[in-house]
Design a protein around this nucleic acid. Sequence first.
DNA 1: GTTGAGCGTT
Length: 245
Amino acid sequence: MNQPTKVVYLGSLPFDQTEQQVLEVARSVGPVVDFKLFFDQETGKPKGYAYVEYQDLETAASAVRNLNNYTMGNRNIKCSYSGRLSIEDSIAESGDGIKLPPLPLGIDLIGTSDPTELTFKVVETLEYNKLLSVLKEARSMAKTSPLAMKKLLDENPQLAYALVHAGNLTRKMSPEDINAVLDKPVANGVQNAAAKEFASLPVQAQEQIRAVCALTQNQIEQLQPAEKNMIIQLKEKYSNVVNNI
DNA sequence: GTTGAGCGTT
């Protein structure tokens, strides 16, 4: 992985996009301090890459997260910190080799005092059917590639938080369901038993437990008191299991 | 007429 800098490299840009159009995409993650789009000096043809300087590291990090693989025209553009390593090298160097699908463009958090509460509000604006399809997709991913699901949730606790609330709003993970799982006795302090029990649970229950374990302490604090206690118990019981898969 | 990987046109 390249060293974080305020400057990011944008590559694989469509040749037919104007400087203004590329700049507009760059600005969608935050204010742009400096911007350079490169052309061949002799032919005047675009080289298909650009550099964007943001005002701070946070905005640049957001660009790397949100703009890499962003679809512009008919191409998936590349976005990484400025440096010599290729995108492929960065992925290979980042360890486990698990590649995650791109997430949709994030929303601007500048000036937000409570990002967790904002996540909750965004989830609430979704229609019931949309919530169901999001849960269904998460379940499917948990089933076909549990390691990728674990990585996705570890790296994006806001997604775990959103999934827990989606589970609540659609009554797919009611407090009663959580209690039912907790009521199953497990041999005292024996991780193996918890692991076996986890493996025997329905896939959707496993997926929800993974989501719960990915919640940060701050996010748990935001929950309703009733579910908060259950979430804490769930996390205590299963976090070692989930983290050792 | 021509491009698709590119990490800084001085």
